[in-house]
Design a protein around this nucleic acid. Sequence first.
RNA 1: GCCCAGGUAGUGUAGAGGCCUAUCAUGAUGCCCUGUCACGGCAUCGACACGGAUUCGAAUUCCGUCCUGGGCGCCA
Length: 462
Amino acid sequence: MTCFFQTPEGNFPLLFIHKTHIPSPPIQTGLYMRIPINEVTPDIERAEIAGWVHEVRDLGGLTFFLIRDRTGIVQVTIVKKKAPAAVLEAAKAVSRESVVRVAGTVKAIDKAPGGRELNPDTFEIVSACASPLPLDVVEKVPADLDTRLDARFLDVRKPRVAAVFKVRSAVTAAAYDFFTQRGFYNITSPKIVAAATEGGTELFPIAYFEKEAFLNQSPQLYKQMMMAAGFEKVFEIGPIFRAEEHNTVRHLNEATSIDVEVSFADHEDVMKILEELVAHQYAVVADRCSDALAEMGVEEFEVPKAPFPRIAYADAIEIAAGKIEEPIACGDDLSTPAERAIGDEMGEHYFIVDWPSAIRPYYAMPYEDDPAICKAFDMMHPRMELSSGAQRVHQHDLLVEQIQAKGLNPENFEFYLQPFAYGMPPHAGWGLGMERLVMTMLGLQNIREAVLFPRDRHRVVP
RNA sequence: GCCCAGGUAGUGUAGAGGCCUAUCAUGAUGCCCUGUCACGGCAUCGACACGGAUUCGAAUUCCGUCCUGGGCGCCA
């Protein structure tokens, strides 16, 4: 028997609406007529909710249940002397984290969390939860990250953990908005590829029928092909795979990349797009995710302002040399301590520009007046690198020359080089690491906390 | 891959050769409790990663294996 919740036409309660959620009428499905828990307010008479048993406090004649759904938590109070026998029976049998359906009258009570509680005439166990739980959802006892990831579906039941992914969802949505408004085409490139045309990072080999194939490390080459195709402005948000055996708090073997490529543009043009995107994503989170931020205990959420400062690679090296013990010179890659030292000095998002051509990929465009440096850049958060990009070499012959200069064989780059011989416009682009963006935005200590199901050197499940 | 630190009830911990029939908290189960909000009280349940060595005696020392965390390296 289902209890129906009557809502006056056009008069949905608005008191406790989270900004992250769109106010919604009762959700009628084949199974239920329920309302989100954050819309259970003192000014409605009846409510039917469905959710998980967050906590139980049994005082004898009086039992308090905290019931949780994705929108919030409400207290359900059962008075032993007054409640129907069926309610008492279910309330006695139910275990924590079971799914229940509860319907009854809503009362305004100061003593209850949120100033309201539900006195049920219906209390139904929809799906019982086994015991003991692999981890404590209420967080009276903390769990190690490894334990949490092993039982991730339970871990993200914690409102504090779920908040990370509400923010991540908003960050993704903000990017789609941003690019769509600016006339970018959204593309999807293949993740199964035949060869490692870029060199550098290691690839995961896969079995592809009778052929050898790999998981793609980056959509880079495909973005560039779409420049030759005349799409002019493209973006893609998708997975990338790196078979590096790294073991750090800021590396993943499967990550999400926000990738952009723009024709008739140079590195400065796409840096502008990048800084404006990041500022926009922060602004959207600040505007729409205040509840999620509060849930995580983020008190000061500063939206970075574009433009971000630019610092030349040579000057960055100088800063690092003055701050760290190990020797560092022009032409070196930035070590982790060097990166951190420069970040401390800058104190905000910034770009490192004018990199030596020798330590950037062959497709980075050298400066015409000084080919020793190139039009490549990294976009940094004080804690780490978030993005790298460049104006690309679009001249076929120069590209062949640069491939050879890196000690690579142009014959292995046939499918990459072909578009460059048939009218390739000048173009520039970048890739931005989604997980690092969310990690630095929220001050997470480990990048794995920014991924639902992280893939690292040792973890392939769940 | 290298270096460091670890692996004790479901979860998080105490433990430094005999004091361990292993601490505390949380949890689960039972009983008491009508306004809790980390509810409270009483009782019960539940663990030394695996293999080997040293020793009269090992959770504790040593070796190996597996696993975990952190730092570094690697990283279009």
